[in-house]
């Protein structure tokens, strides 16, 4: 069996400096403790999912990594250096596509690129449009695109600046299942080709199992990392294979008490395994 349950890795004992690291990080908003004493290392080029029910602090962790928030205690490190504010080395892809409505699709994709020399800029944008299958739609405005197309454009806009890290905050949560599957395929193709480090926030077990090298399962109240799972299965993953079924069952089991806790708190809303 290729599924291994491991305790959260401790970053300081590793020889290799992790791409991203949280060391004993806590963050509160007023009386609410969003995350408590979280330690996690993310290796270069790995695809790590933060999996958990709503309100477990996974978005807070992403915002801390992004530099949108600063930790109350503990440290957030990129390549061993403290993160200070947001920046294009850790590009964030939001749940909403967050395209700029006054720009065309092509202008949005070129947003983070140097605007000069013009020919290079235009050629790069053309390549990126092709990369996300939007060749014919560069001249449109965001409001003229479907949800999936918008999110692909947002992905291309992020890849344009060649970030070392992509931080993705439930980017496909508002898409229909078919579109989501297509985007999983696109993202995986791009990730396998470009060797980016990806931190992917999701509440979907399927999504995490399909995409990740490692899955950090989170616990609620306060938000913390319950366990980190290695997923040593080749891509693309066959959802009918016994290994995948076994992994999903293992995750479900791991999350049972979290689900129960959440069900007690909120009824049955907000979380579907």
């Amino acid at each position: 069996m290729s599924v291994a349950l491991q305790p959260p890795p401790v970053s300081s004992t590793k020889a290799e400096i992790p791409r991203l690291a949280l060391a004993g990080v806590s963050k509160s908003f007023g009386a609410l403790t969003a995350v408590k004493d979280v330690s996690l290392s993310i290796r270069r080029g790995e695809f790590l999912s933060l999996l958990g029910p709503s309100g477990c602090g996974k978005t807070t962790i992403l915002n801390l990594l992004a530099g949108f928030e600063t930790p109350d205690t503990g440290r957030v490190l990129m390549d061993g250096r403290p993160v200070q504010g947001a920046g294009p080395d850790r590009l964030v892809i939001f749940q909403e596509p967050a395209l700029l409505p006054w720009l065309t699709v092509a202008e949005n994709i070129g947003f983070g690129l140097p605007q000069k020399p013009r020919e290079l800029h235009d050629e790069t944008v053309r390549l990126l449009l092709r990369l996300v299958h939007l060749d014919k739609f560069g001249h449109l405005r965001p409001h003229e695109l479907s949800g999936g197309m918008k999110q692909r454009a947002a992905l291309a806009r992020a890849l344009a600046v060649d970030p070392q890290v992509l931080l993705m905050d439930e980017p496909f949560a508002s898409l229909d299942p078919q579109t989501r599957e297509l985007l999983h395929h696109d993202l995986q193709r791009l990730w396998l080709g470009l060797h980016k480090t990806v931190v992917f926030v999701t509440h979907s077990v399927e999504e995490a199992v399909r995409l990740s090298d490692r899955i950090a399962i989170m616990a609620t109240q306060p938000g913390r990392i319950r366990r980190v799972l290695d997923v040593d299965l080749p891509h693309p993953r066959d959802f009918n294979s016994p290994e995948v079924a076994e992994l999903r069952a293992a995750i479900r089991e791991e999350m049972q008490d979290e689900l129960a806790k959440l069900a007690r708190r909120e009824g049955d809303e907000g979380w579907r395994p």
């Binding site: 949108f68 947001a86 920046g87 850790r90 590009l91 964030v92 939001f94 909403e96 700029l100």
Partner: peptide, 11 residues
Amino acid sequence: PLLRRVGQTFG
């Protein structure tokens, strides 16, 4: 605020 954050993440 989301658009502000877009500006921030692009540095």
